[in-house]
Structures are given as C-alpha cells and as structure tokens.
Amino acid sequence: MVTIVLKGLRDTEEFGERLGNILKGGDVLSLTGDLGAGKTTLTKSIGKGLGVEEYITSPTFALINEYNGRVKVYHFDVYRLDNVDDLYDLGFEDYFYSDGVTIVEWGDRISELLPEETIHIHIEKGKELDERIVTISGEGERYSQIVKELREI
C-alpha cells in the first residue's frame, strides 16, 4: 500500500497525469472516497495522461462514458447503480477485460465484480481545504509495476 499527500488541485492533476502516462490497456482502477473527495477530478487528469482530448464528465446518470486516447478509456460511475445485475445487462466484462483502461468510481459498490488485479485508489479530504490523501493498493505484477513507476517520477 502506498499513501500520497496531494497539497492542492495542481498536485492532484499532476498525479493523475503521471498515473495516466503509466497505465496501459487492460488496467482497471477502482476509485473510492466520500462525495466531493476528487474522484472525477482525478479521472479527468488520468484521462489527460492517457491522451484523451475530449472533456471527461462523470457518467453518474449514463453509468459509462467511453473516450479515445492512446487506448480506449472506459469511465464507470456506479454511485446510482440500483443493482449489480444492471452491469451484467451492460456487458461489463467486455470493458473490464478489454484492451482499454477502465476507471470505476465507487468501485467498492461492485467489488465482487472487479478483476483480481484491480488497482484500488482511495481518496480522502485532508486537513487543508484542497489537500487530498490518496491510498493506492492492489495485488499482482501490474500493481507492483505501477507503484514502482510512480515512485521513480
């Protein structure tokens, strides 16, 4: 597990872009944290690092948005999901096990459906107004590679 303290919006954006630059097709991220913690802000920055030029918005009512970057980016927001069966109807496996990068806001709500090697990112508000505490956890080789590369930057 790795904990990073981000001192403001610019730190969050820079962290997200760095992470996006490291990610590759097949990676799945689960973002968790309270409302307003910065999950969508982080997703926008990750998208930028992945080469997405479109404006990234939260798919709260659409459930999923797709973007083109150097790989496809699938952005889920499962906050309003009534039942995990809705994800089966959507064919979530086609996204989670694809050549794209999948980012799931509120991933803890569907933890039983996430791949084993999902990268878990928890965001908490810090003591200062724009401070965020980011905890990254996961298992497997890909998690280890991502953490190693984040530390090298």
Rank of each mutant, 00 (worst) to 15 (best):
K127I: 14
G138Q: 08
I121W: 01
S30R: 05
A62Q: 13
L129C: 05
G69L: 09
E124M: 10
R151Y: 05
I22F: 00
I136M: 10
R10E: 15
E66I: 03
G8C: 02
G100C: 08
T41P: 01
T43K: 05
N65L: 13
R151P: 00
F61L: 11
G100R: 01
G36H: 04
L23S: 00
E14L: 08
I123K: 03
E17F: 05
I123Y: 01
K127L: 15
G107H: 07
I136N: 01
R80A: 09
E17R: 13
D99V: 08
E14V: 11
D11Q: 03
L42M: 13
V84A: 07
E112G: 04
V28C: 03
L113Q: 15
I103H: 01
G20F: 00
P59S: 09
G8S: 11
G25F: 04
G36A: 11
V84S: 13
K48R: 14
G20W: 00
L35V: 15
V52G: 01
V84C: 06
L9K: 06
E141Q: 11
Y88N: 08
T41E: 07
G20S: 02
R142P: 07
Q145K: 12
G33M: 06
Y88Q: 07
G8R: 02
V104C: 04
Y97R: 14
L9W: 04
I103D: 01
Y95L: 11
S111D: 13
S98E: 05
V101T: 11
S58D: 06
G91H: 03
Y143D: 08
I4A: 06
